[in-house]
Computed example of a mutant assay.
Amino acid sequence: MDFTFKEDQTMLVDSVRKFLMNEVSPELIRELWTRPSGRSRELWNLLAAQGLTGLSVPEAHGGMGLNDIDWVLIAQECGYHALPEPLLESAWTGAGLIAALPESDFRNQWLAKIADGSARIALAHPHSPLVADADQASLMLLSRGGKLYAVPPQLARLTAQPSVDPSRRLFTVNWERDERSCISSDADVLCAEAFNRGALASAAQLLGLTQRMLDLSIDYTAQRKQFGKPVGSYQAVKHHLADVAIKLEFARPVVYRAAHAMAHGAPFRAAHVSHAKIAAAEAAQLAARHGIQVHGAMGYTWELDLQIFMKMAWALDAAWGDRSFHLARTRAFVLESGAALGPGCTFEE
Rank of each mutant, 00 (worst) to 15 (best):
M11H: 13
M11F: 03
M11V: 01
M11Q: 14
L12V: 01
L12N: 08
V13M: 15
V13S: 14
V13I: 14
V13D: 06
V13K: 12
D14Y: 12
S15E: 14
S15Q: 14
S15M: 08
S15G: 03
S15I: 03
V16T: 09
V16P: 00
V16Y: 11
R17S: 11
R17A: 12
R17F: 02
K18C: 07
K18P: 01
F19V: 03
L20G: 04
M21I: 00
M21H: 09
M21F: 05
N22H: 09
N22Q: 12
E23C: 00
E23W: 05
S25R: 11
S25H: 13
S25V: 02
P26V: 05
P26Q: 04
P26T: 08
E27C: 01
E27H: 02
L28R: 15
L28T: 11
I29L: 11
I29Q: 04
I29N: 04
I29R: 07
R30N: 05
E31R: 06
E31I: 03
L32R: 03
L32F: 04
W33R: 14
W33G: 11
T34W: 06
T34M: 10
R35Q: 14
P36L: 11
P36Q: 05
S37V: 13
S37A: 10
G38H: 02
G38Q: 05
G38E: 01
G38F: 01
R39Y: 14
R39Q: 10
S40I: 02
S40L: 03
S40D: 03
S40V: 02
S40P: 00
R41D: 13
R41W: 08
L43P: 12
W44T: 06
W44A: 07
N45T: 09
N45I: 01
N45L: 07
A48P: 10
A49W: 01
A49F: 06
Q50A: 14
G51H: 08
G51E: 06
G51T: 04
L52M: 12
L52Y: 14
L52A: 05
L52P: 00
G54A: 04
G54I: 11
G54M: 11
L55F: 13
S56C: 15
V57D: 09
P58I: 04
A60P: 03
A60C: 08
H61A: 13
H61Y: 14
H61I: 02
G62I: 00
G62F: 06
G62A: 02
G63A: 06
G63Y: 05
G63H: 02
M64V: 11
M64E: 15
G65H: 01
L66R: 03
L66C: 13
L66A: 13
N67V: 05
N67P: 08
N67F: 00
N67S: 12
N67G: 15
D68R: 12
D68P: 03
